[in-house]
Amino acid sequence: MTSAADDDDSRLFRDAIGPVRPLRESTPPPGAPKPRPRARMAELDDAAAREEFRHALESSLLEAGDVLSHRDDRLPARTFQRLRRGEMAIQDELDLHGADVREAQELLRAFIAHARDHGLGCVRVIHGKGLHGTAGPFTSRDAPVLKNLVDRLLRQRADVLAFHSAPPAQGGTGAVLILLAPPARRR
């Protein structure tokens, strides 16, 4: 009896709906987008530039026994000679032993700014000789990391007239004497 009732219901449903036609097949949903094309030549150029930078950096790195030395054109040669011989009074000192690169960079910048703001003329920074250093992020050889950091940062500052490794009695190649421009001469 259920089959006659099912057939009767189906016929009533088809009569109520009317004629039907099959639906078109729908297009499938879009798949995952294709990956963007890679700029392979740009990637190769970047890699080559990083490698060239690393080689240039390695060739200009200071070794443990190398002397730090720089003189701005504004400073007379005679004054620079006095700095080299350690004949200028050290007014303040910063010891970077035990600092990592980021901390040493922040300490050095703050120290130079403090010395400049307080009108100090000659200061000493102890960076160590770098005998126990390890290879840096861009180098494959051991190099005195803090010594090279100090050299690079001091060369970039307009308020530094000159710097030179300290005489042996004042720390030798493990320290640097820095001569700051007087307030009137600062750019």
Rank of each mutant, 00 (worst) to 15 (best):
G133I: 00
G121E: 14
Q156R: 12
L131T: 10
H127T: 08
E93T: 15
V125P: 04
R152F: 07
Q91I: 12
K129W: 06
L131N: 13
G133K: 02
P137A: 09
D117W: 01
G130W: 08
L154D: 05
P137C: 04
V125H: 01
H97F: 07
G128N: 08
I126E: 11
V101H: 15
D151G: 03
D142A: 13
V123S: 06
H114M: 05
L96P: 06
H118K: 11
G119K: 05
R157V: 00
A135N: 06
G86I: 07
R102M: 13
D142R: 14
L108T: 09
L146I: 14
L83K: 12
E106A: 09
L83P: 13
T134F: 12
G136W: 05
N148W: 07
V150N: 01
T134L: 14
Q156E: 10
R102Y: 07
I90S: 10
R102L: 15
K129G: 03
I112C: 00
L107N: 01
D151K: 03
L108K: 03
H118W: 08
H118G: 05
T134Y: 10
V150E: 01
N148K: 00
R109A: 02
A110G: 00
Q105P: 01
A135P: 03
L120S: 06
A158G: 05
R141S: 12
G98N: 07
K129Y: 05
R109G: 13
L146N: 06
H97K: 11
H118Q: 07
I90K: 11
G136C: 05
D151N: 14
G136P: 04
V150P: 06
Q105H: 09
P144D: 08
H97A: 14
A158Y: 03
C122F: 10
E103F: 04
I112T: 01
A104H: 01
R82E: 14
Q91P: 06
R152H: 11
G133Y: 02
H127W: 08
